[in-house]
């Protein structure tokens, strides 16, 4: 059998036979959704990437901060 099919079946069977693992995967998926879809998108924009379009602008801003803070 093709190695890829074997690996696929290995994972498929593993996931199918999970007991407590199903609950744990549900927790992981909910957690990742909260982190990446809600928190990252709405609450955690990258400050420098959002406010400046080039690295040069970001550098100038941080130098300004270092000098004047």
């Amino acid at each position: 059998m093709n190695i890829f099919v074997k690996v696929f079946n290995f994972y498929l069977e593993g996931f199918k036979n999970m007991k407590i693992g199903k609950t744990l995967w549900l927790i992981i998926i909910v957690k990742l959704f909260i982190m990446f879809v809600i928190l990252k998108m709405f609450f955690f924009p990258n400050f420098l990437k959002t406010n400046f379009s080039t690295d040069e602008e970001r550098s100038d801003y941080v130098i300004e901060q270092l000098i004047n803070k």
Binding site: L39, K40, N46, F47, L48, V62, K69
Partner: peptide, 18 residues
Amino acid sequence: GLILEFEFGTNWSNYSWF
């Protein structure tokens, strides 16, 4: 731990750049 990296980019941008 990934949340720490989010915080670097949002709350600690001067540090992250430095």
